[in-house]
Structures are given as structure tokens and as C-alpha cells.
Design a protein around this nucleic acid. Structure first.
Lengths: 249, 249
DNA sequence: ATTCTCCAGATTGTTCAACGATTCAGCATT
DNA sequence: AATGCTGAATCGTTGAACAATCTGGAGAAT
């Protein structure tokens, strides 16, 4: 019986579209796709299920370590078990869930080692991106993220503050104008979001990096990319240290 | 009717195992998995199908742009269409195939833009890894890859030469001891393999980088990581340029 | 009391068959 | 030549089924 598909449209911002965006994002790559450039992006049901789960995951409805039962989710969302399975495959490829053969899929949880690992990736791609500078437009995007953070701070919007920080770092990676780097960064940030629910938004946690971001951005605008890279690196190291202290060990 | 599963075991070296390795590779991350640490790694059928396709892809049996029909492959490999579908999802997440909704999946092909993109990723993670040095064991692994290349050159083994080069660069990323960076590198290399079939192994293509690798490795061993990074960066830039010239535009 | 064996219940992995939806190519129409 | 239609092929999704595997506990053995 076809149910009401109540989860349509509540996809998590960009995640839901990405799966489909990938199918026409490489217009230059596949000649056959050049004709259908403006295809209407209607994500498959599987992708929407994945998006819904991503949403609940970012929202904190689903907690790390929790088990996801195929049948349950299939019924809850009114889709076939097979479709849920495809959604799981999608999420597993993003490391948001872990598959244990014959046991099921569990929401991923970052261990102490993973924290260092994630920050290693961030150091690699963020510092590399900023050291090579970027077009004026891309630099402007970085500045915009700094402004966004400042406004959120003034408004006392803690939620917006965290999101602005993510925009800042995403904008930095954006300097490189590399689709693949953007994807990697998005994935890493998604993994970290999973984690932030433990280290609940700590007021002190965000203190300080507002001006830090400003300084980094200023150095970047002035063309002192080497200095910007150093500042960013220092920030990432400090951030990792903070995370580690918050998260035991 | 259960067929003979003739493709069991012919998985492409590491690719086939990786999907499963991921399910118990994070022993520290998921506490629940600690008990079943030594589980026998029997990849699911879907993973084996994916491995088989990866193999044919690396082998050149399947060419970029080619279409993969679900039903055909399902019959050829004696598995269900649904399973093939899961395999496709796996490959799509690795960018080895591209999904066109309602049209099918096609073997990915790298365009001019993708080349630059891929090299941007490599510059970011390889240079970052080498600049931070690494443990003696990891450095020894880099040296081993250089030796492997030298021996292959002496033996006139062109095939082994290319593979040694990949080992070299993988060893460099290995310096960072980051599982995620390793995965990213493996994926990027897999993508490039797809591409090399066009720029058929050109003798001149490999000329020069043998000593280049040696010099990079020597600098690394001497602790001159900054210099090693510069050399590596120069190599990557030159390599990208070569690729671009070979590949039109 | 601890360990071992074994069994029943639950969940996953995989297959199969079916149906609507979408695309594509060829042909007819204007 | 451009447009619109029709039919075949393929994809997306569903639902049901079955074997394989895991889980947890009851009972037996030490």
C-alpha cells in the first residue's frame, strides 16, 4: 500500500541533492549528459531515505552506536526493505553508519583515534587550500562566513555560530575550486557533526575562534597565504586538542 | 538457480577486501565489535560483484563511457539484479561509475577538468603527508617502493613499474598514518587507473621519475621534509602537465 | 558456580517476480 | 525540418520468500 511518503522534502539541506547532483555534476566528463543539462533533480526514494536518516542523525534523534534495523525503518518510512538497504549502502560509503555483516548497521561513533584521523585530513586539505590562495570571489566567500559568524554571535545564536564556523572552513576548502576536495570536506564535517552531540555546544568551545577566523581571513585577503596557512594550522591543532580533552583521554 | 559463482576469489588484490575490512577495521571505534575481532572476512556477494567489476575495469575489459546493464551483468555473474544494484551503489560511491537516473550506470571517464581536480587532491594530501615526515618504518616503506621501481626497471617490467610508482605515492600518504587519507588516496589512484588506459603505458611517460622518486625519498630520510615536499609538488605539477598534454586540450 | 552445548527466535543476505515510470529510437504528422 | 506519438527496453521500487547467520538463554556437564 503506497503510504504518504511523509519524509519527502525534509532532506538535510544539501545532502539529499548531492546524490543526484553527482549524476549531472560532471557535464564535461560524460558527453552523453551534455544534452540533458537542466534535468530536474528528483532524488530516488533510496536517496531520500538516506537523506532522512542523515537529518535525524544531525538532529540527534539517532545516537552513535545505535542499531538501525532494516525492517523497522522500512515500515516507519513506508518503503521497501530493499530500498532501505540501498540507503544504508549510501550512508555506509559516507562512514556515517558501519555495517557489521549479518548483524546489522550501526550509527558510527568516533573513537579517540578517529578524532586525530579526521583532523589529519582537515589539516591536509584546508591548509593546502589556503596556501594556494584563491580567486577574489572565493576569498569574498570566506569573508562572508566570518561576517555570518560575527552576526550570529551578536544575536546570541549559538546554533548559527556553529554553522557559520563550518561555512568558514568549507569556504577555505572552496578556494581550491576542487569538486573532490569539497566532497571530502563535506564528508569530514558530516562525520564531525555526529560527534558534536557529545561535546554539547559548549559556549567556551567557540570562544576565541571568531577573532581567529577574522585574522586568518585578513591574512588571506592581504595575500599573505603562508601566514594564513600557519594560523589555520595552529587553529586546527588547538581545536583537535580541545576535542580530545572534552572527549575523555 | 544457483550458478557456479565463477568469479569468487578473483577479486582485484585489495579492493575486494576493503569493503569488508571497513566493517572491522575500526575496532577501537565501535565497542560492540570488539568481541568479534577475528571474524572471517567473507565479503558479501554484492561486494564480490563490485570487486569483479573493479577488476575488469582495471584490466581494461570495461572501457570508460561503456554502459553497464543491470540485467546483463546479473545474468553473466549469476546473481540477482538487486545484488548487482548494490554493487553499483558501491562503485558509484567510489566514482568508478556514474549513475544516470532511469538511464543506467556508465563507466566513469575523466574529463579535462577532472584531471586537474584529481591532482589538486593529490597535491593536498601527498605534500601534506610528506611535510610532516613519519616514523622510520613508514619511511622505510617509501624506500622499499623506490627499490621496487628500480628492480622493475632493470627487469624491463613495464607493468611492475607503474605499480611500483603507485606504491611509492601510497607509501608517502602512509606517512601520515591516517586511515582516511589512505582511503582517499586509494580512491584517487583507482580513478586514475581508469584513465591510464587511454594514455597507454608510454615508455617516456615513466622516464625520469625513477630518479625523482629516489631524490624525494633521500630528502625524506635525511629529515629535509620541506625540500621533499617541494620536490614532490614539482613532480605532481609536471605529471599533471604531462597527463594534460597526452590527453588532448 | 562456571563452562559448554544446543536450540529457538530474530535479523540479515540474497533471490525472484512483478508493475509503474522513464527513456530512447523510429516513425508519422504538421 | 521540427514536432509529436508509439512501442520496446530498462530502470526504480515493491513484496514475498528462503537460507545463512547471529543472539540469547535453557539446560547439561564439569
Amino acid at each position: 500500500m503506497g503510504r504518504s511518503c511523509k519524509f519527502i522534502g525534509m532532506a538535510s539541506s544539501d545532502a539529499g541533492v548531492r546524490a543526484v547532483a553527482g549524476s549531472f555534476g560532471e557535464a564535461a566528463a560524460s558527453p552523453a549528459a551534455s544534452a540533458a543539462r537542466f534535468r530536474v533533480a528528483v532524488p530516488s526514494v533510496a536517496s531520500r531515505v538516506a537523506a532522512e536518516l542523515r537529518y535525524q542523525l544531525a538532529e540527534g534523534t539517532l545516537l552513535p552506536g545505535e542499531k538501525l534495523t532494516e525492517a523497522t525503518i522500512a515500515e516507519e518510512l513506508g518503503v521497501s526493505r530493499n530500498t532501505v538497504r540501498e540507503a544504508f549502502a549510501e550512508l555506509a560509503s559516507e562512514r556515517l553508519v558501519v555495517r557489521h555483516p549479518n548483524r546489522g548497521v550501526f550509527i558510527a561513533s568516533l573513537g579517540a583515534g578517529d578524532i586525530h584521523d579526521v583532523y589529519t585530513v582537515r589539516r591536509a586539505i584546508e591548509v593546502s587550500s589556503i596556501r594556494n590562495g584563491g580567486s577574489p570571489e572565493r576569498i569574498a566567500a570566506v569573508r562572508a562566513a566570518v561576517e555570518e559568524g560575527r552576526k550570529a554571535a551578536e544575536a546570541g545564536d549559538n546554533e548559527g555560530l556553529g554553522s557559520a564556523n563550518q561555512h568558514f572552513h568549507r569556504a577555505i576548502v572552496g578556494l581550491a575550486e576542487s569538486h573532490r576536495l569539497d566532497m571530502i570536506m563535506a564528508q569530514v564535517l558530516a562525520e564531525m557533526r555526529l560527534f558534536f552531540h557529545k561535546a554539547t555546544v559548549d559556549a567556551k568551545f567557540y570562544s576565541g575562534w571568531l577573532e581567529e577566523n577574522d585574522r586568518i581571513c585578513t591574512a588571506l585577503e592581504a595575500g599573505r597565504t603562508e601566514e594564513a596557512g600557519e594560523l589555520l594550522l595552529a587553529y586546527l591543532n588547538a581545536s583537535e586538542e580541545k576535542q580530545r580533552s572534552v572527549h575523555g583521554e
